[in-house]
C-alpha cells in the first residue's frame, strides 16, 4: 500500500468518504417505456482517491456522473458527497467533459475564468492570476490570449481541465476526457493529469472505456456492466506512484489489464 492510500484509509476512519452511493438506481421515462440505466450501485470513494470507472458504452457511466454533479436526481437510493446527500449541483465538484466544449469566442484565459464569471458575473484580478497559474501547470503558458480554434485537441482539453480546476473543487469528475484524442496525446495527457493530481491531490472520478488508461491512472478501478448498470468488480491497483512511461509496459500493469480484460470479455453484455 502506498503512502497516499494509507492517508486515504486513515481519513476514511474519521471523516465521511468524499463520495458514497447507497442502493443507487436510475430509471428514465422514455417514449417507449421506462429505461433502467443504473441498478443497486453501491460504493464509496475516499478523499483524494483516484477512481476509474471502466465499462462499455451504455452501462450508465455518464448517468452516474450526472447524478454526482447534481444535474439529475436519483430514482432510488442516495448519492452523498462528504456525508451530505447531493440534491443540487455543488460548488466543490468540477467537471471535465468528453469534448473540451470551450467558448469559441473567448480567449484561453477567459475560458478558464468562465465558471467564475458565469456564476458570479465578475472576474477579479486574483481569478485571472489563478487562471494563468493553472495554465502554466497544464503547460499552456504563452497561449493565454489565443482562441480555442487555434489550439490542438489535446491543448483544448488542457484548457478544459484548467477550467474545471479553477473553482478549486474537492472532487473532479472526468467523463472520458481523453477519448477524442489520438493514442499518443492520450497517454501524454494521462501522465500530465497524474502530475497535476499528485501536486494538488483531489478526489477524482475518471470515467473511461480504456482498460490501460484505467489501470495506469487510478488507485482503484470499478468495473461496470450494463444495462442496467451496476458495479461488477472493485479492484485496487497497487502499482507504486509516481507512475510513468515505464509503468505502462510493466508486468504488474499487464497483469491488471489482462485480468480486467478477461472480466469484461467474459460477459457478452460488456463488450467494449
Amino acid at each position: 500500500m502506498n503512502p497516499k492510500m494509507k492517508i486515504a484509509a486513515a481519513n476514511s476512519a474519521i471523516a465521511p468518504p468524499a463520495l458514497s452511493f447507497k442502493g443507487l438506481g436510475q430509471v428514465y421515462q422514455t417514449g417507449s417505456g421506462p429505461l433502467e440505466a443504473l441498478r443497486g450501485v453501491e460504493f464509496s470513494v475516499d478523499r483524494h482517491q483516484f477512481v476509474a470507472v471502466l465499462g462499455p458504452s451504455g452501462c450508465g457511466k455518464s448517468t452516474l456522473l450526472r447524478l454526482i454533479a447534481g444535474l439529475l436526481k436519483p430514482s432510488s437510493g442516495r448519492v452523498e458527497a462528504f456525508g451530505h446527500p447531493i440534491t443540487e449541483p455543488r460548488d466543490d465538484i468540477g467537471i471535465v467533459f468528453q469534448n473540451p466544449t470551450l467558448l469559441p469566442w473567448a480567449s484561453v484565459e477567459d475560458n478558464v475564468v468562465f465558471p467564475v464569471k458565469h456564476k458570479t458575473g465578475r472576474v477579479s484580478r486574483e481569478d485571472r492570476e489563478r487562471a494563468r497559474n493553472l495554465l502554466d501547470k497544464v503547460g499552456l503558458t504563452g497561449f493565454e490570449k489565443r482562441l480555442p480554434a487555434e489550439l490542438s485537441g489535446g491543448m483544448q482539453q488542457r484548457v478544459g481541465i484548467a477550467r474545471a480546476l479553477h473553482m478549486n473543487p474537492d472532487i473532479l469528475l472526468m467523463d472520458e476526457p481523453f477519448s477524442a484524442l489520438d493514442a499518443l496525446t492520450r497517454e501524454e495527457m494521462g501522465f500530465e493529469l497524474l502530475r497535476i493530481w499528485e501536486a494538488q491531490p483531489k478526489t477524482v472520478l475518471f470515467i473511461t472505456h480504456s482498460i490501460s488508461e484505467a489501470v495506469l491512472l487510478a488507485d482503484r478501478v470499478l468495473v461496470m456492466s450494463g444495462s442496467p448498470g451496476w458495479v461488477i468488480e472493485d479492484i485496487s491497483i497497487e502499482i507504486p506512484r509516481p507512475r510513468g512511461i515505464e509503468t505502462s509496459s510493466s508486468a504488474e500493469m499487464q497483469d491488471y489489464a489482462g485480468h480486467l480484460r478477461k472480466l469484461l470479455l467474459k460477459r457478452p453484455e460488456t463488450q467494449l
Partner: peptide, 14 residues
C-alpha cells in the same frame, strides 16, 4: 449550444 455547456451552466447554478 452544446449540451455540455448548458450542463456546466446548471452545475454552477448560474
Amino acid at each position: 449550444t452544446p449540451e455540455e455547456l448548458i450542463e456546466l451552466s446548471k452545475s454552477l447554478k448560474a
